[in-house]
Write a protein that binds this DNA or RNA. Sequence first.
DNA 1: TGTATCGTTTAACAGTGTTAAATAATTTTA
DNA 2: TAAAATTATTTAACACTGTTAAACGATACA
Lengths: 199, 199
Amino acid sequence: MASKDRILRLKEETRCNILDASLKIVKEGGWDALSMRKIADEIEYTAPIIYEYYSNKGAILLELTRKGFLLLSKKLEEAKAKHRLPAKQLEAMWLAYWDFAFAEKELYQVMYGVETTCCEMAKKLPESEMPMDLIWDVIVELMLPHVGTEEEVCIKYYTFWSVIHGLISINMVNRGNTDETNQEVLKTAITGIIRSIKG
Amino acid sequence: MASKDRILRLKEETRCNILDASLKIVKEGGWDALSMRKIADEIEYTAPIIYEYYSNKGAILLELTRKGFLLLSKKLEEAKAKHRLPAKQLEAMWLAYWDFAFAEKELYQVMYGVETTCCEMAKKLPESEMPMDLIWDVIVELMLPHVGTEEEVCIKYYTFWSVIHGLISINMVNRGNTDETNQEVLKTAITGIIRSIKG
DNA sequence: TGTATCGTTTAACAGTGTTAAATAATTTTA
DNA sequence: TAAAATTATTTAACACTGTTAAACGATACA
């Protein structure tokens, strides 16, 4: 009976619609705006129907992160294919990674646990700039006798901060590295950047 | 009347108790476990009382992030004071930053928007390892003819990933940098690491 | 002692994820 | 075609969330 196939096809379609609706809601109002009832509204059903397709809300998020990793991998492969030299390939791949993060911001957020809401408020705190100011001063001193421009110091600071915050984030959400590996990455990164600052 | 003072002191104390209770709950069960009613339970009151001290839940989070930035700044200053050379100071400060992140994990999370829950599940996805595998291969090729050990490649990979994921995260939650600054940081970081890999 | 103020709680509202039961629609069987 | 069985969908409910308004209790002031 071909009607079975048709029904299966429809089921697969609503399964897909649920994901699309979810992503649409998130893109419009952020991850906090995503609720089962809103998804149901979007696909013109009521909430419990969703549980016929996904066991719970977490399963929807999981499927979205899966899609995210697949899409990212595709982008990386495409970037690689455009070059022959490994150095060029690597550079292109990381730039593709960068582009993906902002083109598919919501996916990147759920893939790697980057919150945005909680830091909306931190921006209002004057205290949030204190750590930067403290480190900024030392970078300026380190560059002496050369007097660095704001732009120059800024780049140094963010290079530092990125590698350290990145390593911290990765370890917090992933807990994959050994302490030795972390210390190694940290040390090589820090001393490398310091050396590049000093000349 | 000194009783006014006593009452003010008590008020200040419960204001503080609310923060302590919140942090305790979060440390025990993560940020998802934090609710107004649980805080009330902890300080042996009912929920609406909390609104006499903080206008809403967000105000509590904001106060915790403020405490976090203050504590981090203190740690950075202490680290700086232990050395005289700017290079040594800088190294010590970033190591203090690192230590703070894990010693006060919950504070760091709310300060910089690092989620942990959503990536519990991503670990189960085989797809989550695809991007690493793709880039891993190119790093190995780039190191040829030297055949890198697993540990060596791992450190290179995480150095790359850290700086890029860090820069992405910072931009997502902060949106502070100009595109030119970002591109500059990205490019210098990438080419720098690539050069260090090639010899 | 009566009144006003303050501290605190109870009750409620709108929202969340999720489940069980009731209903509507469809398909299968007689 | 009519009845039965199965499937699709919804309604109602539960326990929870943040938050507010009203009621209650105690305390201080006249």
